[in-house]
């Protein structure tokens, strides 16, 4: 089929067409899984709180998210008269777009990544650092107190935890010798005794896996770090003035980011698309299913944390980021690079 399109459209036209098709192949399933994962999230909290959760729309309430989406779609978009209208409408679009673009570099299988670029990990960092703009702009353009407080909190929080995440990623890059996400996954093959796939089994990298998991909770503003949307203090945080589709875009973007962080946890430390054990028969299952399964496990952990852990105070949040995670991960970079210098000198990897 590729040859047919390149014959009719020329190389560039064909490349363009296939890239668009690939983007749709990622975006549509992603949106579907966002809808289902919101349902899963609500069901998990419900069962932890001994409630039933959504159970009316469709069998077992499976269609709840779609019903919510339809409801939100039919609502009126209210723009506060004092708001900066262009930025007010632009902010949710930025959040949503940024949540989608990171998926370009995620490897779904050995050769299945939309853009298998050399600087994949840096691209992830760059794109996730853009996410803060959607929130800041919402806070400022709403021209309202609570959203602005929330935006300040969000920016400080995301910038702080990105520092720790950066150092965690450096230890991974040092170990795998590459910024390319596919290479990072391949470096995890047979990490533990030639049998277990994943950096987590490495005692030098396991603490970083924990730090990364907690930082990814903070980066996505999930509980216990959901101070930006702390409803007892800030109404609904930066989303307070939003309604209808502009609100829905935040909602979708937030969950797309959560799924992304779960996938990154799986990809960077738990073997990504590789099966958990390096046994030939397990490779019969396609890699994307392994990745999906790992992503779901992490999502369950995210929900579990949200359902059980009380919210942090703001000073505790900052203390954890700057006084615990930053020194710890910085020290770990020394430790990992020192170990690699001792064991791999001259290998050039």
């Amino acid at each position: 089929m590729t040859s047919w399109t390149s014959a009719t459209l020329g190389y560039e036209g064909s490349w363009f067409l296939w890239t668009i098709i690939d983007i749709l192949l990622i975006a549509f399933p992603l949106m579907l899984s966002v809808a289902m994962i919101i349902y899963a999230d609500r069901k998990i909290w419900a069962s932890m709180a001994l409630r039933r959760g959504p159970n009316v729309v469709g069998p077992f309430g499976l269609l709840q998210s779609f019903a919510d989406g339809l409801k939100v779609f039919l609502q009126e978009t209210i723009i506060p008269s004092a708001a900066n209208k262009v930025l007010f409408l632009l902010a949710p679009i930025i959040t949503f777009t940024v949540a989608l673009i990171v998926w370009a570099v995620v490897p779904f299988d050995e050769r299945a990544a939309l853009a298998n670029i050399n600087v994949g990990l840096l691209y992830v960092l760059a794109a996730s650092s853009l996410g803060v703009y959607g929130i800041i702009l919402a806070g400022w353009s709403s021209n309202s107190k609570y959203p602005f407080y929330s935006a300040i909190r969000a920016a400080a929080q995301m910038v702080s935890y990105e520092v720790a995440i950066g150092f965690v990623l450096i230890s991974i890059v040092l170990w795998s010798g590459s910024f390319n996400l596919t290479n990072i996954v391949e470096a995890q093959r047979g990490m533990g005794f030639g049998l277990i796939n994943g950096f987590f089994i490495n005692p030098l990298l396991f603490p970083m896996a924990v730090v990364f998991f907690i930082s990814s909770l903070a980066e996505t503003q999930r509980a216990p770090f959901d101070l930006t949307e702390a409803e007892s203090e800030l109404v609904a945080g930066y989303q307070t003035e939003y309604s209808s589709m502009s609100f829905a875009l935040y909602w979708l973007g937030e969950y797309a980011n959560v799924i992304l962080m779960c996938t990154l946890n799986a990809t960077l430390f738990w073997g990504g698309y590789l099966p958990p054990l390096d046994i030939p028969i397990l490779y019969a299952v396609p890699g994307i299913l392994w990745l999906f399964a790992k992503m779901l496990v992490f999502f369950f952990l995210f929900s579990w944390v949200k359902a059980t852990v009380p919210r942090y105070r703001y000073d505790q949040l900052m203390r954890l980021g700057w006084k615990v995670f930053l020194p710890l991960s910085l020290f770990w970079v020394f430790l990992v690079s020192g170990y690699l210098m001792l064991t791999r000198v001259g290998v050039g990897g």
């Binding site: 670029i117 760059a126 650092s129 703009y133 300040i152 990105e162």
Partner: peptide
């Protein structure tokens, strides 16, 4: 120069400009 490009986005867009924006706001 994809490395420099990514650094530009991470450092300037992701951190420096955020602070700029805050100061100005």
């Amino acid at each position: 120069a994809e490395f420099i490009a990514m650094l530009l986005v991470i450092v300037y867009v992701g951190a420096v400009a955020v602070l700029f924006l805050f100061v100005v706001m």
